[in-house]
Simulated scan of single mutants.
Amino acid sequence: MPDVREVVDPVAVGRWFTALGVEHTAPLRFDRIGLGQSNLTFLVRDDADRRWVLRRPPLGQLLASAHDVVREARIMAALETTDVPAPRILGVVDDPTVSEVPLVLMEFVDGQVVDTMAIVESLTPARRRAIAESLPRTLAKIHAVDLTAVGLTDLASHKPYAVRQLKRWSGQWEQSKTRELPELDELTRKLTTDIPPQREVTLVHGDFHLRNVITAHDTGDIVAALDWELSTLGDPLADMGSLLAYWTEPGENTGGDFPASALPGFPNRAQMSAAYLELTGRDPAALRYWHAFGLWKLAVIGEGVLRRARDTPQNKAAAGTPTVERIDAIVHRALDVTEET
Score class of each variant (00 low, 15 high):
1 M>Y: 12
1 M>N: 12
1 M>D: 12
5 R>N: 13
6 E>P: 03
6 E>Y: 07
8 V>A: 03
10 P>L: 02
10 P>C: 08
12 A>N: 04
12 A>C: 10
13 V>A: 04
15 R>V: 11
20 L>S: 02
22 V>S: 08
25 T>S: 14
25 T>N: 08
29 R>F: 08
33 I>N: 00
34 G>R: 00
37 Q>N: 15
39 N>A: 12
42 F>G: 00
44 V>Y: 03
47 D>A: 15
54 L>A: 05
58 P>Q: 07
59 L>M: 15
68 D>H: 08
69 V>Q: 01
73 A>I: 02
77 A>K: 08
79 L>N: 02
80 E>D: 13
81 T>S: 14
82 T>H: 00
82 T>V: 05
85 P>R: 02
87 P>S: 06
90 L>Y: 04
92 V>H: 00
92 V>E: 02
96 P>W: 10
96 P>I: 00
99 S>W: 06
100 E>I: 03
102 P>T: 06
103 L>H: 01
104 V>C: 06
107 E>V: 01
108 F>D: 03
108 F>H: 07
109 V>L: 01
114 V>C: 14
114 V>G: 07
118 A>I: 10
119 I>S: 11
119 I>K: 15
121 E>F: 00
125 P>K: 04
126 A>N: 10
129 R>D: 09
131 I>R: 06
132 A>C: 11
133 E>N: 09
133 E>R: 09
135 L>P: 05
137 R>F: 09
141 K>G: 08
141 K>W: 10
146 D>R: 02
148 T>D: 15
154 D>V: 11
158 H>E: 13
165 Q>W: 09
168 R>L: 15
169 W>H: 05
175 Q>N: 11
176 S>R: 14
183 E>V: 11
191 L>E: 06
192 T>A: 15
198 Q>T: 12
208 F>L: 12
210 L>A: 03
216 A>E: 13
222 I>T: 03
224 A>L: 03
224 A>M: 03
224 A>W: 00
226 L>D: 07
226 L>P: 06
233 L>F: 03
236 P>R: 01
240 M>G: 01
240 M>Q: 10
246 Y>A: 13
248 T>S: 14
249 E>W: 04
257 D>T: 13
260 A>T: 10
260 A>N: 07
261 S>M: 14
263 L>F: 09
265 G>N: 10
266 F>A: 02
266 F>M: 09
270 A>T: 11
276 Y>T: 09
277 L>M: 09
279 L>P: 02
279 L>W: 06
281 G>S: 11
282 R>Q: 14
282 R>H: 15
283 D>T: 10
287 L>I: 10
287 L>V: 10
288 R>V: 05
298 L>W: 11
299 A>S: 14
302 G>I: 03
302 G>Q: 07
304 G>Y: 04
307 R>D: 13
308 R>V: 04
313 P>S: 13
314 Q>H: 13
314 Q>Y: 06
316 K>Y: 00
316 K>D: 09
317 A>G: 14
326 R>D: 05
331 V>H: 04
339 E>S: 15
